[in-house]
Structure formats: C-alpha cells, structure tokens
Design a protein around this nucleic acid. Structure first.
Lengths: 219, 219
DNA sequence: CTTATATTCAAGAACTCTCTTGAATGAACG
DNA sequence: CGTTCATTCAAGAGAGTTCTTGAATATAAG
C-alpha cells in the first residue's frame, strides 16, 4: 500500500510531465504565458489545426497545467498558475545544460544566444530611468496590447526593418519578446546590429517580467 | 526556419519532459537523488526487473537527466545536476496544487500530510543546537551511510517499532527520509505518535537539505 | 582462456499518443 | 426556433512506449 500509493503519486506527477512532453504543447504554453487566449487564437498562432489545438489544450487541462473557461461563444484558456512558469523555467534550465552535449540544432541556437549578452531586468529599469535606452517589444501587436513592459514601444519583428526610423539613432536598443524560448528578440537584435544599432536582448520576456513581480502596462 | 528551429528546440525540451513522464522513472530519480547507485541497486530498490531498470535508466540518460559511468564491473548512475532536483520540485509544486481537483488517491495522500505540520530546516538547526530534539533518518541503512544530516541517528522505518527505546522519551522527535515524495517519514511520524511521542516530519529530505547548501555527513 | 557477474541489446505483444477527418454540441443572434 | 460560430467528440491510421524474454557484451577473477 505504501508502495502502491507512492507509485500512484508518481503516476500523477508523471502525467503532468507528459503534458509538457510535446513540442506543440510547449508552444501553446508559451503563448498562454503571454496572456489568456481562445482556441481559435492559439490555433492561428501555432499553425495547428483547430481540432488538434483543442485536443492538445484538453490534454493540458486534464493534467492541470491550464484552465479553460467558457466565455460566451468562446472557450478561453490560461495557465493554471505561476508555478507552471516555474516548471517551464526548470525544464529549460536542464535543457540548456544538456543542449551542448547532444542536440546540434539546439546547441547552435544557444551558441548564437551566448554571443548576444542579455540585459538583466534590474539593469533595464535603471537605464530606462536615465532615458538612455529604447525598449522595444517585438511581439505581434495583439500580445503587446494584452500586456507589456511599461515604457516599451511595440514594433513587431515583421515590421522592424520598415520601421527602423522610429528608433532614435543614438540610444541603445533593448528588445524583448515572449520569453527565453522565443526567437523574436534574437532576430530583432541581429537585424538591428546589421543596421548599425547598439542592440541587446532583455534577459527574459513578458512572462518572466510579470513573474518577477514587476508592473505591466495594458493596452 | 525560425519556426522550425523553435519547434526543434521545443522538441528537445519535450524529450526531457517525457523522460520524467513515467512513474518508475520518477521513482528511479528519487533514489538517485539520495546518491549515485548501480543498476543492480536501483533494480532492488524499485522492484523493477534488471533489464527494465536498465532501459529506464538509458531513457533518462538519453535526455540528459542522469549520467551513467562504468566503474569496474558496474555502471553507476547519478543525477546530471542539481537542476534536476529543481525540476522535480517544480513538477511537485504543480502536482500538489492540482491534486485536490483530480486524483483521489493523491489528494488523500496530501491530506494526511497536511495534518502533520513539517519542521523547516532553519527550525531544526536551531533546536538541534539547543539539544531539545532527536533527529532520526528513517531511510534504509545504505542510504544513510552514503550521506545524512549531521547529528541524525539512523533507524530505518522497518526497524522503528522494535527500536523505540533508542529514542529518549522526553524530547521531540523529528524524522526525515528521501524527500517530499517519500512516505517513510510520514509513516514514521504516525508510528511514533501512536507510541505517544511528540513527533514531526522535517520539511524536505536529504536531497533538499543538500540542495539548500547545508552540510552532510558521510558514513 | 574460461567462467561469473553486471549490464545492455533485440524482438515482439499490448498499449498509448498524435494527427486527420467529419459529425456533434452549446451559446448567441437574427 | 433555426442558423451561425467556436469548440469538442469520435474513430481510425500510423507511430511511439513499455514490459518481458532471451541472447549478447564487457569487465574481473580464477
């Protein structure tokens, strides 16, 4: 019984781990970390079919990682708690350490990343105060509207090249996006450097900012 | 490419999550959190067959959660890093929150647990200093020998009833075992209370103690 | 060199997961 | 109250996981 109960307990935890055990579901979780979203919105963001998105969301809900709530005609999903962000961060920590050793694609990714040193939140706050820095949020506009770092200007990555003139030439540019797994800010920094700007990435995206207890701005 | 690379990255993280996605593998990880062990030792502790234990360990090694090293005739496995403990703790945090809602067995487990308030590490250290407390390690002797909290006395759960007289009657008893998922200390506390002792559980087992940077004693 | 010991590999049966397709539900709106 | 829209359910093909069994390695010891 003690042994059986223990395995039952482990089985429950294993179910949660299996909930995270699919690339598309991690993608969905990252999008949900930006804020609550309908199934339709998630299907559009991830490129999955409607039914498939729904099934993945139900898998996540079954193990308690997300909560789905009917709101009129739509069902809106959100992360079930901040500990889900912590769990994803812990997974990332193990993954980044292991990446070098095994996965080439991934280690390329992280090598590129190491080359661009990230700016900690505290440093950003300080420089924002001094007015020495332009902070840009390179996520799509709808995610910016839902929540963003105070003082950030929204220039989605897709529009960045065309809107370079909106960024004051002298100041340092700091870019952020959805979080540590998100490529948008990396690409933004690469593009900005190509254009001769002094650009760096913020060390963490909006979910990490919020998780750190820092204020966010809406609309 | 950006999208493909991102999914490759997520797939790598998902592989790690799937590594945790099996009750037996979580069991193996908990045992490895006590210290490195051979395949044979793990098979004995978990009750799995030899070949099955080996296969699960290889699954864990493939995703970088454990490291296996040939040492003479044996292959000795250990956790690949402290971040694996953090990952397990994060998984537990989500699981405990979700437990009430879904798994009855598990919620029973956690209810029983809530009834016995756990003693934080800091409190233990203070009371140990005052000599007001008897600390017992209820894990099997081999795990105690590998590492234990300084000042603890080893009385494996199986022997506890027979060795009650080794515990000074007046003082409070604090028991610990393998960690938050381990039932040994729960059962020890229940048994001690039945015997009229003032017993409580330590809030965390040996892996958590070590992870907190506190000193351990060997042999 | 042979044997014993510890571990891994290989193959197969039973089961689970994933994605697709098309039908079914549930709420809102005319 | 019938239609529309967003979502879920159901069934099935294909792939992956798990456990068992027995054979294959690799090291150590005689």
């Amino acid at each position: 019984m003690a042994l059986g109960a223990k395995l039952d307990l482990f089985a429950a935890f294993a179910d949660i781990a299996r909930g995270l055990g699919n690339a598309h579901r991690l993608d969905l979780l990252e999008h949900l970390a930006q804020g609550e979203k309908s199934v339709e919105a998630l299907a559009a963001k991830t490129g999955l079919t409607f039914a498939n998105t729904s099934q993945h969301l139900q898998a996540l809900r079954r193990v308690g990682l997300v909560i789905g709530e009917r709101r009129g005609k739509q069902v809106v999903y959100r992360l079930s708690g901040d500990d889900v962000l912590d769990l994803m961060a812990a997974l990332r920590a193990v993954g980044e350490r292991h990446a070098d050793a095994v996965q080439t694609v991934v280690s390329d990714y992280f090598e590129a990343r190491d080359a661009l040193e990230a700016v900690p939140f505290a440093t950003l706050e300080q420089r924002m105060g001094d007015g020495l820095v332009t902070l840009i949020d390179v996520r799509p506009a709808d995610e910016f509207v839902a929540a963003h770092v105070p003082g950030a200007r929204n220039i989605p990555l897709a529009e960045l090249r065309a809107r370079l003139d909106e960024i004051p030439p002298g100041a340092e540019v700091i870019a952020y996006c959805r979080g540590p797994w998100c490529v948008l800010a990396f690409e933004a920094v690469a593009l900005l450097r190509e254009a001769g700007r002094d650009a760096r990435r913020l060390d963490g995206g909006l979910p990490e900012w919020r998780r750190a207890g820092l204020p966010v701005e809406v609309a």
